[in-house]
Design a protein around this nucleic acid. Structure first.
Lengths: 342, 342
DNA sequence: CGATGCAATGGCAACGCTGTCATCGCGGGC
DNA sequence: GCCCGCGATGACAGCGTTGCCATTGCATCG
């Protein structure tokens, strides 16, 4: 007596390899081989099978396939935010690197929260990804342990100021901050202000500020005024905080911003308030966004190579499934964009 | 003689429910129940099992879980691009809607290519997602068929100018274009120019242009000059094309842009060229981006509700696994932002 | 005090596919 | 004429988890 248990009654009717094999009068193996593009089958068989595939509207179930082959073809990507334009740009680079391969990215957002990141990484690893690309190199202990023990490739991107789990790709944000200081000091500026992010969760903004301070210290200088804010940076905040800073600290020669968004806001304030840039006040950003180039006065800033970072991260994990001995650091560098605001 | 086949030799050693069950001296079922948070187990057993989970560093394999339960907990998202800021904003809405649920989004990019979209949808469906959220409602026949026959929830978002497969959420872009025309005509403008996207792949920009023309026609007017471009819009293109338009067509009273990026570029051109806005020339955008509000002169534009679109799309698919009879159209509307440039 | 109900746990097949080997058929070499 | 080799195909056991019962143990009740 057949004990055909009726499991998950009423579930979605699904076309499976079995159905295709039955219709095409071949074995499931043959169907599977054809669907995966293995070329050990006769053209005649392939035709016959593909016809059945079309007739039934068969779409292979990659969940079953991944389980059977123990290879999910998934690349996990962890970023803090989508509202900061730099991360979509990195994603574009990742996407470009993935184009034409059979890998697929899965993106998770942490909202700049390391505990959230831990949750997100755990959920991601549950999908057995072939690799994880994760922004930043500061994580909770548990996150580091999970990533390390997973054995898969792990690329930490954006900053290279910390030692890697596997590979890090990006630029030194401390270095960028320091370079900003040196560049502006060399131009003769002495009275510095800072406008931007002053919290602790955007670690890279923080590192740039630290680098800036260190660079100024080398020249015996300090920041004479700061207008710090928490949370998401924006053009509007940059505008408002610049107004605030100008009111509180007259006599500044140059304001350094945590990023271009804020700097653009600063420029808008100056335009509205009749402050001549860079004569009365010079402005300096970070990121090298497109909008900076289109401004009436091109923004002086530092270009980071976000697209390239994403692309190289993908190339790295596709190149080998083995981690390099003792980790690896790939510096994508940064360049000062002269512009016309400093 | 044991015929324990050595399958996939040298594969990643993986901790499974079996290992946890063995260590905790319970059955696999119990471990599974605990991992899924079902509360039919004693607290004592839970403690014991969780201890083993921690000791072994067990992470459930969701691929196997999805196969067994025939529920992947995945939400497929298909968007044309990440470089157009509006899509990351929709993604944020989607993410917000998904937060706190056990669903996970998987994002695919089409590069505004309908054939690419077809490929991407096929690959996405292979992951057996619980729903697909897809930008736009113009697809290839094959794409429509696949989405329709999948039986899962399908939300087409951004535009509501076409009939839905299941549900559409967004705004009427033709309507937005027409509203722009009416608004500006009512303000007394008569000599209109257009700057922006003129290709065929960004269908929504095209629809807004069509609506604009229709709205002008109602008042017996036409566009007196256009500067069209293909490909990605940007602030820089907006600036350059505005310069071009002003040179070619002096005497225009107002320029309508395909989006805020282009309009911001237009404003930058005017600032640099000493053109008084809106006195000499009025400018009008589309989207209602944050940057428009921060400009020295707030941009006159139309606000679309991208975040809300994403959020509502998620709420819709989470609310029911059944498609509404005959489809449904959810209009998130748009509002004219007065601004100071028109 | 035995029957009954219920909460807690166990056993095991099934999810749809792929890896691995077995098998089949056919042509060529000796 | 026989066997070998090889290309093409088939058979089947997993992959790690969950759904669906079955079973167990214990308290309750007439």
């Amino acid at each position: 007596m057949a004990k055909q248990r009726q499991r998950l009654v009423g579930r979605r009717s699904q076309v499976t390899v079995r159905d295709v094999a039955l219709l095409a009068e071949v074995s499931e193996s043959t169907v599977s081989r054809i669907m995966r593009g293995q070329d050990l089958v006769t053209e005649a068989t392939r035709q016959k099978v593909m016809e059945s595939v079309r007739a039934l509207g068969y779409v292979p179930n990659r969940i079953a396939g991944s389980l059977a082959s123990l290879d999910s073809r998934l690349i996990g990507v962890v970023i803090p935010s989508l509202s900061n334009i730099v991360f979509p740009e990195v994603l574009q680079g990742i996407n470009a690197g993935l184009a034409g391969t059979d890998r697929q990215s899965v993106i998770s957002i942490t909202d700049y929260d390391l505990d959230q990141e831990e949750v997100v990484v755990r959920n991601l690893l549950a999908w057995q990804p072939a690799a994880v690309l994760i922004a930043g190199s500061t994580h909770t202990d548990a996150t580091c342990r999970m990533l390390d023990q997973s054995g898969i490739r792990v690329v930490e991107f954006m900053e290279i100021d910390n030692p890697p789990i596997d590979v890090v790709i990006g630029l030194s944000h401390v270095g960028a901050g320091r370079a900003t200081a040196r560049h502006l000091v060399a131009k003769g500026y002495r009275r510095f202000g800072y406008v931007g992010y002053g919290g602790t969760v955007d670690i890279r903004a923080r590192m740039r500020l630290d680098g800036l301070r260190a660079g100024l210290a080398e020249a015996g200088l300090t920041l004479q005024a700061e207008s710090l804010s928490d949370g998401q940076t924006s053009v509007e905040k940059g505008k408002a905080q610049t107004a605030d800073l100008c009111a509180r600290a007259p006599g500044l020669q140059v304001v350094v911003y945590s990023n271009d968004d804020m700097a653009v806001g600063g420029l808008f304030h100056c335009m509205g308030a009749g402050i001549s840039v860079p004569g009365d006040l010079a402005l300096f950003g970070f990121n090298g966004l497109d909008i900076g180039r289109a401004l009436p006065q091109p923004l002086s800033t530092i270009r980071s190579n976000r697209f390239q970072i994403g692309r190289m991260a993908v190339e790295e994990v596709l190149s080998s499934t083995a981690r390099p001995e003792g980790g690896r650091v790939i510096d994508t560098g940064f360049e000062i964009v002269e512009g016309a605001t400093a």
